[in-house]
């Protein structure tokens, strides 16, 4: 794995390398280099299987982190390529031309985070949230609890006890 990362490092500006397991490493590259890197991994390094594309909302850093998980079925190793994109302009180049199924992930990310992948087939179609009329729900500023309380009819929560106050009531009620 290390020799592969070293080799990639000669061509790409790779940062934040994490050797998570002997068969899994994370690397971070700039948004502009992601497609070059994953294309290279597909065409030259045997990472023919696309596993998944995920996103993390780093709201404090005003960034979304995209992670492309790829698998080399021959060597049985995984590499996860990360990049950060601007949260104020969440647009990323589509990679559906490399693996067709990426379009589905990109469609999901559009719906859940509002990240656009121009040209990705069906990217503007509903994924699971038919009739959604709010901000994308996986964005951290989305108040899930408030939304649920306003939209559904929650069963009231059971009565709870604060340990400190409960202990006072039992152990020193008159103090």
């Amino acid at each position: 794995m290390k020799s592969l990362i070293d080799k990639l490092g000669k061509t790409f500006d790779i940062k934040d390398i994490v050797y998570q397991r002997p068969n899994l490493a994370f690397v971070t590259v700039s948004k502009e280099h992601v497609l070059n890197l994953i294309t290279n991994l597909l065409d030259y390094e045997g990472f023919s299987h696309f596993v998944l594309l995920s996103c993390v909302d780093w709201i404090e850093d005003n960034a979304f982190q995209l992670t492309y998980f790829l698998n080399n079925p021959t060597l049985k190793i995984d590499i996860a390529v990360r990049c950060f994109i601007d949260r104020n302009n969440p647009t990323m180049t589509s990679a559906h031309h490399l693996w067709k199924q990426i379009a589905t992930y990109q469609r999901e990310l559009k719906e859940m985070y509002g990240i656009d992948f121009p040209g990705s087939p069906g990217v503007d179609e509903n994924f699971v949230l038919e009739g959604w009329d709010n901000i994308p729900p996986m964005r951290r500023e989305f108040d899930t609890k408030k939304y649920a309380e306003e939209t559904f009819f929650p069963r009231p929560r059971n009565k709870t006890n604060d340990p400190k106050e409960y202990m006072k009531s039992k152990m020193y009620p008159n103090d």
């Binding site: 929560r157 059971n158 009565k159 709870t160 006890n161 604060d162 340990p163 409960y166 202990m167 039992k170 152990m171």
Partner: peptide
């Protein structure tokens, strides 16, 4: 999760 008294467990 709510915290509740349990019979037999002493404070």
């Amino acid at each position: 999760i709510v915290m509740v008294p349990v019979e037999g467990i002493e404070t």
